[in-house]
Design a protein around this nucleic acid. Sequence first.
DNA 1: GCCGTTTTCGGCCCGACTGTTTTCAGTCG
Length: 573
Amino acid sequence: MNNAEIARIMREIAILLDMEEVQFKPRAYEKAAYAIEALDQPVAEMYRQGGMKAIESIPGVGKNIAEKILTLIETGRLPYYEDLKQKTPVDLANLTAIEGLGPKMIKALYDHLGIKTVEELEKAAQEGKIRHLPHFGEKSEQKILKGIAFLKKSSGRFPLGVALPLVLEIEGRLQKIKGVKQVAVAGSIRRRKETIGDADILVVSSQPDLVMDVLVKMPEVVLIHGKGHTKSSVKLNNGMDVDVRVVEEQSFGAALNYFTGSKDHDIALRRIAQEKNLKLNEYGVYRGEKVLAGVTEAEVYEALGLPYIPPELRENSGEIEAAIAGKLPDLIDYDDLKGDLQTQTNWTDGSNSIEEMAQEAKRLGLEYIAITDHTKSLAMTGGSDEKKLQQQMAVIDELNKKLRGITILKGAEVNINKDGTLDIADDTLAKLDVVGVAVHSHFSLSREDMTRRVIRAMENPHADILFHPTGRLIQKREPYDIDIDEVIKAAKRTGTVLEIDGYPDRLDLKDEHVRKAVEAGVKLVIDTDAHNVNHLSFLHYGIATARRGWAKKSDILNTKSLKEFIKSLKDAR
DNA sequence: GCCGTTTTCGGCCCGACTGTTTTCAGTCG
């Protein structure tokens, strides 16, 4: 059993204990779940190497939880969990995904109405049965229906942050199979779309049947849609479909192009081929019977008289016209970043120390990292006040004297108050290297009020960067209502930098907004919003989003050296 | 159930918001 599954069960136990009004234990299980997720190696492996001691060394895991984890590793089951589950046998994963529904309400819905699933909940809400329960009313009924509608809209798609690591893992397994020469991930994952419908993987192999055998026997496979010599399709235990196609080497480039899409991009390419009296399909580019290209994507584009178009641009949203005109942007590369400007540490809600974050950033090849812990009005995180920020600055000064090859910048993720003022005094902000400002409360202001509020914050002379400008959480929370065009204008006017938050749940600004900002000449940074050392690799998702938004290296300030970066911030002196 | 430069027992992040209430319970971050 892997870490993600163990963490999921720990979380469910927390919810089930919450339902029983058990005190404190739920928080303990939650904490353990979080810690297990943050591990960089499987718990089973830790146990193999260091026994029970190793499991108990995980922060938040003591003797009791360690024993439960061991039971899960060894048997794949946990009687304690199953007993709890029996008391309230409901579809927790999906019910808790509904915004505003927590353990107590789910329990009440089950106790009074026997509701176990989202479908039963929707039916009861539509029939007006829920409003009569104690502590429920018409508004909560409406809120539940709205939450279900949102859930339905997003179901069947997977965030890139879930799909990409999983598919890369599968890609790695396929590469190791005997006879396999090439493997490539195609489809919307290759285009780095923020959500993914299903995964497409292409393989060149001298033994196609062996590839298919390995695929359908993977432990994650719960359903085999079909298995053939060149194409197989399976469903994984997380609900995601994976299609694998074995293609001929001479067609690999054409197939990669065809299956990478987007469909609209492919159609536009075939139209260009037609105009040139050529034929383009998944096997190659043809003039009559003669094959002109097919081995690589580059030669396919070349045969059509086009420069190579990066996958992230292939949405038929102007990239083909730009390619014809020789005006494709020279996109930022995946190794162009020199710094990360939004990271949290164990001074607030992060789990690693400043030094650990800095060391990991250095290991990843960065030259600088800003520490931007939350500020005081975000009470749940133990947000910093002016005094705590001063203390942190002193600690960072000391670390900078000690560390080589990485510079730590003093920063903060400063809360924007309801009226657009900031919750940290200006004289303290002036001492920080990097001030990020962000909305964390009052999400439901009107469009007008929210826009005015954020712009007012951007007008603060110390506010360098607007963090996650729209506040959305992919498939979890809609962005707050804000006029992004006005925000972009204000960014231009005030010299405030807009962030591309690369945390996979956020990707905020999103690709379309990045493109607007780039067109307006507004400068951007790409950050991870890391809350532990593992999150620092999320820069990849931010860069992908930047590329999808047509951003060049010159549009992104943290491609600059430290000195140049600091000079480009608006309060640089 | 976890944890200890206040404690091996007795604490456990806490304020805002919402919708239900008439003083509070549940959820969220």
